[in-house]
Simulated assay, not measured.
Amino acid sequence: MSAPIDLELKKAFSELQVKMIDTQQKAKLADLQIDQLTRVQKLAKLTNAEISTLSDNTRLYEGVGRMFILQSKEDINNQLMDKQKTAEEKIKELEQKKVYLERSVKEAEDNIREMLLSRRTTAQS
């Protein structure tokens, strides 16, 4: 009777290990994406601050691929604000995803602990 219990525990541990590795990889990816979005957000903020110091009749160009397009100061300002807002929203989503991943791993660990405790109490009885 000991062998089926050991196989069951071994299977549960291997599933937990796979889940933890997968979750850690996803969390690292989320961290990298958050870092990248933070850089995009800072760049947009700094660019916006620099543009705001320019006079309204200054000609501003937006780089698109290998060419530059004449844009109004207001249009560029709106684009930069949109970039900041989009980056902020994505950062929030990624942070929520990370919390969910961490919670799911913790639940899986708790389930295995409960399984171990129930096996110990069954074995002692």
Rank of each mutant, 00 (worst) to 15 (best):
L32K: 10
R119I: 12
L46F: 07
E114A: 11
M20D: 11
V105H: 01
M115H: 06
R39Q: 12
G65Y: 02
E107I: 11
Q124A: 15
F68E: 11
R103L: 05
K28M: 10
L60W: 02
I91T: 03
L101E: 09
K90I: 02
Q17D: 14
R66Y: 06
R59V: 15
P4A: 07
K85Y: 09
D31T: 04
R120N: 06
M20R: 12
A108R: 08
Q17R: 09
D35P: 00
G63P: 07
R66T: 15
F68I: 10
E95G: 01
R66M: 10
L37T: 03
Q41V: 02
L70I: 08
D75F: 08
Q96A: 15
I5H: 06
K19L: 14
R113S: 09
L116G: 02
V99T: 13
M1D: 12
E15A: 13
F13W: 04
I69F: 07
T47R: 14
I21K: 12
K97P: 00
R103P: 00
M20V: 13
L80S: 03
G65D: 06
L54K: 07
L7D: 12
P4F: 04
N77L: 08
T23E: 02
T47V: 01
Q36H: 10
I112R: 02
T47S: 11
K42S: 11
Q36C: 07
A12M: 04
L60V: 13
T47I: 03
M81I: 15
K97W: 01
E109I: 14
D75H: 06
I112Q: 05
T38Y: 02
Q71A: 08
L101H: 01
S52L: 10
L32Y: 04
E62M: 13
L16M: 05
S125Y: 03
D75A: 12
